[in-house]
Structure formats: structure tokens, C-alpha cells
């Protein structure tokens, strides 16, 4: 009983802390937290592919963008659309796109997988840029209505112009997404996934269909990228090709994941936090984004390929070795 409480205590503390963020930090940092949550979910969804299945995608922005554009278009053209259907349409667009793409990409891995995604993402980017009559071209879509969060007959909170309310909405949706993804990695299917990463051939010989399993992970990953994109679209109240489909949007979750560590579930969350801090601090003094990103990539892959969580694990291990030695010396 006490053990159980001990396990839940940190989470309860975290939830309470998150609940009080708007009171403590004020509006500016609310934006910071929402952006953080969005990209944490986006990065974890990428890590389902990268860390858990061993597939590097240079075009995950596709699904972020699909979520964003799906929701934005729905809100623009469907009159009085409630909040949750708007979110669902975003997720569905991402899933639909993934259903189209996945038969083409699950056959391959490695370099071909990465490059195919770059190709498809670029195609989508160019299409969004050129089909001005639907997507608004370079300027994108903006100023669509943000529906209130309401349970009919019970409560209704406006989200437009109420950052604190939006913060709660975003935290709940994104928190739930994180929990679902975490659960997903803990299921028997999650085990097959890591098996594929380690040794796809053997998984085949153990009687699991590798391509089917890859396709499922792929669609799940796309769905959660869609959640992130959808929430972000409602948060910013604008979607545009550069911010949702550009190459840098595909790179951001890779940076976050590499920084935080691909080998752990929460690695990308740490990575998102670290990168957000880097952005907050370094980009006050310099606007040389490429140099900073380049240095991060090179340093991390060369000296800490398992990122922040890898380093922590190493430190923990060293600390344990040190303690053991001390104990042995004492004895």
C-alpha cells in the first residue's frame, strides 16, 4: 500500500505543479510550456520510430503538418465545429496520410527509409505552397475560430483569448498522449517493436510479420504527431508550410530526441526541454540557428550518442561502482 503511494506520489506532485503553472509563471511562460508540451509529444512520437523501431525519418513533419492543416481547414470551413471533432479531424488526416504512405515505406529501412520521407515531406510542402486556393500558399491559413472546451449542459470554457484555459486543454491532451504512447511501448506489441530494432530478421523467424508490425508502429507514430500538430495549430491560430511542413520541422524532433536520448521513453521529453532552454538562452545572443543546431548534432552523435538519459545512466552506473568500491573498502 505504502509502496504504491510512493510510486504515485511524484506523479501527483507533478500534476499539482502543472496545475499551478499559470498562477505562478504568467502568460509568457504559458506559451513556453504549451510549445514545450507540443514538441515533447511530437518528439516522443518520432522516437517510437527512431528509438523503438530503429527507423530514421527525415519527414515526420508530414504528420505534424497533416494534423495542423486538417484541424485548421476543418475549423475554417465547418461552421460551429466543436473542439474534440476538430482535434479528431486533425488526427484522422495524419492517420489517413500514414495509411497511404505506409505500404510504400515499410518495405525498406535505413537510408532508403530516411530519404523516402524527405521526398514525401518535400512533396507535401511544395503542394501546400502551391495550392493556394486551399492552403493559402505561403501565408497559410490563419484566424480560424477556436471552439470552446465544453461538455454540453455541464461546462464550457472559452479557449480563444484565454491562454490559461488553453494551457489546461493542451496539457490534458498532450499528457494523455504521452501516457498512451508509454503504455503502447509496454504492451507485448511494444516488445516486438524493440525486437525489430535489434534484429528484424530474427523477429521474422520467430513468427511475427515484420512489415505489419512496422506499419502499426508507423500509423501510431503518425497519429500522435497529428495530435501535436493539431493542438499547435489551435494554439498558434495559424498554419503555414514553413512552420508545419518544412525540413526544419522534421529536424526538430530528431534534435530533441538525439539530445535527450533515443534509448529511453522520456529521453525526447528531456531533449525537448534542453533544446527549448538552448533556444531561450542562446538565441537571445545570436541568431545563428544553423551553427547551433549543427554543433548540437555533431557533439551529441560523437560524444553522447545516447543523449542526456544515456549520460545520466552512465553517471548512475559510475556512482554505483563507486559506492560498491567504498563499501568493499570499508569491509
Amino acid at each position: 500500500m505504502i509502496d504504491k503511494m510512493k510510486r504515485w506520489l511524484p506523479w501527483a506532485a507533478l500534476i499539482i505543479a502543472l496545475a499551478f503553472v499559470p498562477k505562478i509563471f504568467g502568460i509568457y511562460y504559458m506559451n513556453f510550456f504549451i510549445t514545450f508540451a507540443v514538441f515533447a509529444v511530437f518528439s516522443v512520437s518520432l522516437n517510437l520510430l527512431l528509438g523503438y523501431t530503429g527507423l530514421l525519418s527525415f519527414g515526420h513533419a508530414m504528420y505534424f503538418g497533416a494534423g495542423g492543416y486538417g484541424t485548421a481547414l476543418a475549423l475554417k470551413y465547418i461552421w460551429n465545429l466543436p473542439l474534440l471533432p476538430a482535434l479528431s479531424i486533425g488526427i484522422l488526416s495524419a492517420v489517413l496520410l500514414a495509411l497511404i504512405v505506409c505500404p510504400l515505406v515499410v518495405r525498406v529501412g535505413g537510408t532508403a527509409f530516411a530519404m523516402m520521407h524527405m521526398a514525401f515531406a518535400q512533396l507535401l510542402y511544395v503542394i501546400a505552397l502551391k495550392s493556394r486556393f486551399i492552403t493559402g500558399g505561403e501565408d497559410g491559413l490563419a484566424n480560424f475560430r477556436i471552439p470552446p472546451f465544453s461538455i454540453p449542459g455541464v461546462v464550457s470554457f472559452p479557449l480563444e483569448g484565454a491562454p490559461a484555459n488553453f494551457y489546461y486543454f493542451a496539457i490534458i491532451v498532450l499528457g494523455a498522449s504521452l501516457w498512451l504512447m508509454w503504455f503502447f511501448t509496454k504492451t507485448p506489441f511494444g516488445q516486438i517493436q524493440v525486437g525489430i530494432r535489434d534484429n528484424a530478421k530474427r523477429i521474422d523467424y520467430l513468427g511475427f510479420k515484420v512489415t505489419h508490425a512496422k506499419a502499426v508502429v508507423y500509423i501510431v507514430s503518425a497519429a500522435f504527431a497529428g495530435v501535436a500538430g493539431s493542438v499547435y495549430a489551435m494554439f498558434q491560430n495559424v498554419v503555414a508550410p514553413d512552420g508545419y511542413l518544412g525540413l526544419l520541422v522534421s529536424f526538430t524532433p530528431i534534435i530533441n530526441t538525439m539530445l535527450g536520448g533515443i534509448a529511453s521513453f522520456f529521453g525526447p521529453v528531456w531533449g525537448t526541454a534542453i533544446y527549448a532552454l538552448i533556444e531561450e538562452i542562446i538565441f537571445r545572443y545570436t541568431d545563428r540557428v544553423e551553427l547551433v543546431i549543427g554543433i548540437i548534432f555533431v557533439l551529441v552523435i560523437m560524444y553522447a550518442p545516447l543523449g542526456f538519459s544515456g549520460l545520466m545512466l552512465k553517471l548512475k552506473f559510475k556512482w554505483m561502482m563507486f559506492k560498491n568500491k567504498r563499501m568493499r573498502q570499508a569491509a
Binding site: 535505413g110 545563428r288 551553427l291 552523435i301
Partner: peptide, 26 residues
């Protein structure tokens, strides 16, 4: 990074690309 396989090389060369781009602008 060659021991890490395709993923390491892709990410590293991407980083180098960014560094060169940043350096050129600088």
C-alpha cells in the same frame, strides 16, 4: 561514428551540413 551505422552517419553529416551553412553565413 561509423560503428553506429546509417543513423549515426546521416545525423552527423546533417550536422556538418548545418555547420557549413552557418559558417558560410558567418
Amino acid at each position: 561514428v561509423q560503428i553506429m551505422g546509417a543513423m549515426g552517419e546521416l545525423i552527423l553529416t546533417l550536422g556538418v551540413a548545418m555547420l557549413i551553412l552557418g559558417g558560410v553565413k558567418f
